Amino acid sequence: MDISLWDQLQSMDKPQTTLNNSVDRVSDEAIERYARSKWLRHKVDDYIKDDKFRRKSVEAFHADLQKLSNNDAKSLLHVSNILDNRSLENIGLDSGDYRNLLITYLQSRQDPLSTYRELILYKIHNVLPEEYLGWFKDDLRCSLFLAYLVKDSIFINAYKGREELISVVTDYLRYEIHMFIEEYTQNLPAYKVDYKGVGEHKTVDILYAKSVYLKNRSKEKDLKWLDSSNQHQIDWTYNYLNEEKRSYIILEDIFFPQTKEEKYELIIASLDILSNVEGTDVESLAILKKRKGDTKIISRGNSERIDVIQRMKKAWVQLGTDTKNSKDKLVLNITNKNKEKLVALAKNVNQTPNKFINQAIEDVHREVFKIDG
């Protein structure tokens, strides 16, 4: 029976050289920076060619693997799943489990170091680098927009609150950028300002989505009237946008906000995906979606987004006026018999019932209290 390289390594005597020899070991700095650099790939190539490295103890290699960050270990474990056509059942564990599972996986391979190199190579060429995640992974509004772009293909589960939603969007973009590239244009809103994407194949689309979104999302000046600290206003706005005849709230039954701040972010993100092209009637929107980048459409008024915001603001102002007026009103019950008499009396003097009864009260009040004028 063949003996694996791992078993051979375990059976060897420990070398006399110390682990402090930087020439014969994977340095701490290289392990920490491998996600952003191809340097480690070349170092590992050198080590594979070096027979002395194969005589090193397996414990030394273990020690280097234990220094991997949680994200690095999780990323390499995910790569191993892809290369072995396995499911993602081991993605979503506690932090320490990723390193342990990665070590166990490497132990099972005939040539652990070559496998390690293969994982790193795949990660370099296919996994989205961390520096491209920063603009949205701490921003719920941006993450909601990205989730909306791929909602039809992967977001079938339910997520409560910002942490869950941002986490799933971040992992999706980090590990499944190829899926994002295939899907996102199907839900990209009809925007006024376009952008010419530049970059390598795995980054050009996320940079395009970022730039187009930030250049076209709702302007602060249009939303000054909406107070993120006003629970009543936030609840009213959410319900207004989510009425059946409107249905503007995105990710319905997928994202469930847990605080008023999260509900506010969802409201703004839902407005962000509405077209900001002036005169966006149904026909114009259809034309725009077919001809990406061609925004030469005859303006017929406000954009869809501004129209929704203005109508919503008007309804909110009217609600405040009605509420204020209602505080000055006294509701009285009048029998049907007296209601008929009231209508007849008001009609006799060409007044509305409301005006007649208020005038009658004033007249009686002056007579009873002997008030002149």
Rank of each mutant, 00 (worst) to 15 (best):
I3K: 14
S4R: 03
Q8W: 04
Q10L: 13
S11H: 06
K14G: 03
K14R: 14
P15W: 09
T17G: 12
L19G: 15
S27P: 09
D28P: 01
A30R: 07
S37Y: 06
K38N: 13
L40S: 08
L40R: 03
D46P: 00
D50H: 07
R54A: 13
S57H: 12
E59Q: 13
A60K: 08
L65S: 00
K67E: 12
N71H: 05
N71W: 04
I82F: 14
L83M: 14
D84M: 08
R86L: 10
S87Y: 09
N90T: 14
I91M: 10
D94Y: 11
D94T: 12
D94H: 12
D97L: 09
Y98N: 05
L101R: 14
L101N: 15
I103T: 06
D111W: 08
P112K: 00
P112F: 10
Y122G: 01
Y122E: 08
H125T: 13
L128C: 11
Y132N: 10
L133F: 06
W135H: 08
K137P: 01
L140T: 07
S143P: 02
S143K: 04
D152E: 15
I154W: 14
F155A: 05
F155N: 03
A158F: 15
K160M: 10
E163S: 14
E164P: 02
S167P: 06
V168A: 11
T170F: 01
Y172V: 08
Y172A: 04
Y175M: 13
Y175N: 04
M179T: 12
I181M: 13
Y184S: 01
Q186I: 08
N187H: 11
Y195L: 04
T203R: 00
L207W: 07
L207H: 03
Y208Q: 09
R217G: 00
K221C: 08
L226Y: 05
S228E: 11
S229A: 08
N230R: 09
N230W: 06
H232M: 13
D235W: 00
N242I: 01
E244Q: 12
K245L: 08
R246S: 06
E252T: 11
F256W: 15
Q258D: 11
E262T: 08
E262R: 07
K263R: 15
Y264F: 12
L266T: 02
I268F: 02
A269M: 05
G279T: 01
V282T: 11
L285N: 05
D294T: 04
I297S: 10
R305F: 06
D307V: 03
K314V: 05
K314W: 03
G320L: 15
E340T: 14
E340A: 13
K341S: 09
K347N: 15
K347P: 10
P353N: 10
I357H: 02
Q359E: 15
A360R: 05
D363N: 05
H365K: 15
D372A: 14
